[in-house]
Design a protein around this nucleic acid. Sequence first.
DNA 1: TCAAAGACTAAACCGCTGTTCAATCGGCGC
DNA 2: GCGCCGATTGAACAGCGGTTTAGTCTTTGA
Lengths: 223, 223
Amino acid sequence: MRIGESPAAGGGAATAERIRDAAIVRFGRDGFSAGLRAVAADARVTAGLVVHHFGSKDGLRRACDAYVLEVIRSEKMKAVTGSASGMIAQLAEVEEYAPLALYAMRSMQSGGELATAFVEQMCRDAEQYLAAGVEAGKIKPSRDPAGRARYLTYQGMGALLLWMSLRNGSVEVEDFRTELRRLSDEITLPALELFTDGLFVDRSLLDDYLMYVCDPPAGPAQP
Amino acid sequence: MRIGESPAAGGGAATAERIRDAAIVRFGRDGFSAGLRAVAADARVTAGLVVHHFGSKDGLRRACDAYVLEVIRSEKMKAVTGSASGMIAQLAEVEEYAPLALYAMRSMQSGGELATAFVEQMCRDAEQYLAAGVEAGKIKPSRDPAGRARYLTYQGMGALLLWMSLRNGSVEVEDFRTELRRLSDEITLPALELFTDGLFVDRSLLDDYLMYVCDPPAGPAQP
DNA sequence: TCAAAGACTAAACCGCTGTTCAATCGGCGC
DNA sequence: GCGCCGATTGAACAGCGGTTTAGTCTTTGA
């Protein structure tokens, strides 16, 4: 027994969780180029023990991915406030989950299974959220609901990703939260303007496009 | 004299340009984690010569950044078709400049001076482009033109960045061009819908927000 | 013609990386 | 008590990264 831990016997499985949590924080802060020894030092163990528990660095990352995705899925993240990036912002607002949000961002920055699964789920959530809005008479219907959900998700999450990438180097969790709020304040007015009034004064561009492609690309199965 | 080169005397300065061009292609394809030896092999030189000409890997990257930014600035990239990502698409369509577009994307993915300067310039271009559209009566005016331009730029470029990040690993120039066209086809309809009709059916959300913050956050200097 | 200069190479250097290995520690069943 | 087994460590290994260095070769200039 070291200091204030080992709720289970010996602390065997608890150590693995500690390593995983430390990895999530470290990877979120410095990116996946962070070394195994840095993660191990954060968890107050050695690099050898990390590969003993997770097989390899890739195994450690897979464990982190699975955990983060599972937490995000289990939490009621469905109640996204509206914008796609609101999901990350909402997640980051909870003190405990802020590192998870940062990790998810890093995962998106470098690509991988977690990133793909993550945005895919966000697209689905956005689609059903938009459908509910349409049902309630709050949101205008679309000729291609799935495409619109995908478009909005990619735009919102991508803007957040670009904004984080431009802040090069490591990202502290505190800065992430505060600047996320500042970003939210900056984009609220343009987003609301665009969402209520649109951008074009006439519908000629849309009508021309609809005239050009007679059938909308909603579904591939269409007689 | 080696094979078919050395237009100038000895090929001293020409070799540096060849290394720089090879670095742009290699970095664009594999990201900045690509090694100096790979770049050197592409340019049919050794790693030592690269640092002899550029001082260090960072110096090489700075040279690439400066060159790419200079080309993008000198070319009439101002005539962006409309969307923010159209700039990259337009650049990639020109066979010769496709590697530059890929390099710019990689730069945005990892952050740095070039990335910041690049999106900053795009924001300015978008702002004046939108202003011209407003002047011509094609685009609705905004309460915060600069904020709207910034918002649209970040959204469009960010979506492109996210889409490229999800395609992990190396990106071939051919795939980049073809998939860029496919992406453009996918998002055209949702974008046109959003830009002409907006998203909300009523203006309550916007009005509530405008009521909440009496003065728009257009300028920080306001009595 | 000689010498200085720069392009260029091959090899080595050094630090860092992920990974492996042998050894030690500590609890648990027999 | 004894032996096993997993947790854990420290050191070592192998590879790759950027950088350095010594040396060769070519061109240039006095």
